[in-house]
Structure formats: structure tokens, C-alpha cells
Amino acid sequence: MRRTEGVHKEVILFGYGKFGRHMYAQLSQSGYRVTLAVMQESNYQNAVEDGIEEIRRFNPKRNSSIKMLDIDPQKHLLYCAMDHTSSNLFLVLSLHELFHDAVIVAVSNSDENTRKLKYAGADTVIDIYEASAQHLVTNLTKPAVSEALNTIVFEKNDLKIAEIVLEPNTMLEKKYVSQIDFYSRGLILVAIIDKELGDELIYIGKGVDHKFDGGDTLILAGRSNDILAFRKELSGA
């Protein structure tokens, strides 16, 4: 699993068709600075009509055209949401070739294309139908789970899911999960990535009493204030 150190707040979104339009709306509403890169004239016109100011034209087949977008892999997240799979695939390939360190997220419409996009260099692929089907099935068969996930993950409130990378020698150093009372801090520890063991997620529900070390990543659910307080507690402030 590819990890991103620090939080990107700038996104370069490729495509403004049926996928890109929704993606732009959600990202900009969530406070991300989004630069839109479009290939087709019609999409460009749609974006202008929708009042978007930061729009750039590009040609995915020309490296020079992509380079002119001033992509900074440390600063930008690259979202490939072009409607045509072939264009999206070619774009992912070009971006991966030009910016090895960039985090590339691509939208797919089938298992087969997900495989191809990953092979071409996408770090994360969101299968539009997989995600929607999962959402629908959870909604139908586990409505309370769906309600809980919507509240924590999607709705605009102070509940959120966050990841915290442990610095060396924090108060958690060499302590076990069972020794830390997350519940009383208003937090729920969902999973950990143990730096020593690689990039795989270790879920707390499995029941393994994990020992914290510097470099581990904690996946926590909680209210913004409680997460902030915990961050401060960790930094000793």
C-alpha cells in the first residue's frame, strides 16, 4: 500500500465528463484546491459554464503538454477521471512515467479496467460500480452500518476517520494496544500499519496486542477535537 506523508490539499483533476464533474464538485466542496485539466473542447466549455476558473487544456499523448500543467508530486494529488477508459489508461501511464513519486488515483468502470489501470501505475483505483454496489448492498442489508459509515466518513460533521503517523519516542513508544485507553479519549483505533512489518494494515479487531513504535500509522475514528487533542498529547504539547 502506498502511503502519503503529510496531507495533500491540492488536486489536479483530469477530465470533466460524467465522472470528473461529480469529482470536482465533491473535492471543491470539501475544501481542496482543484485545478481542472481537460482534453475535450466540450468539457472545457462545460467547466467554463459551471463557473470554474482554474481550467487548463492538455493532450495526454504529449508529455510536453502534461509538463505544462506544473505538476508537483509532493504537493499535488493526481485524479484521473476521464470518461473514456482508453484515455484514462493512457493518461495514467503518461503521469506515472513523468512523475514516479506522484500519487495517482484513477476511476474505473470494471474489474478488468481496474487491473489495467493499476498495472499502468495508478496507486489507487476506485471502481465506480464496485463502490456503488457495495454502498447499495450495505444500505439494504446493514442499514445501521450504512448510517454509521455515512456519519463518520461522508457527512459533513466533526466525526472523521484519521491517520496519524507516530513520531519516535512518543508516549505510545513500546506500549501495547491493550495498555492505551482510546475509548476514554473519544477515539476508536481501527487499524495500524507497523513500519517494521511493512505496509500491510493490521486490524485491531483481529485481537493481536500490537506494540507501538515510531513510524507506525494509526487509523483512528473520532471527533475532530478529540483527534486534535490526541495529536497534541502525542507531540507532548
Binding site: R3, K18, F19, Q26, L27, Y79, V107, I126, I219
Partner: peptide, 24 residues
């Protein structure tokens, strides 16, 4: 259900917390 919107919402989660996104 609007599949494009759900995908976009997931894209937002990923932008903020990519590891948490994968875990969820």
C-alpha cells in the same frame, strides 16, 4: 444511487486519508 457521486465521495476520503480509505 448516483454511482458517479459515490465514487467522487470516496475520492474525497482518499484525498484526505488514503490509508484510512483503504482500511475502510
Amino acid at each position: 444511487v448516483i454511482p458517479e457521486e459515490i465514487t467522487a465521495m470516496m475520492g474525497v476520503v482518499h484525498a484526505g486519508e488514503p490509508v484510512a480509505f483503504e482500511a475502510l
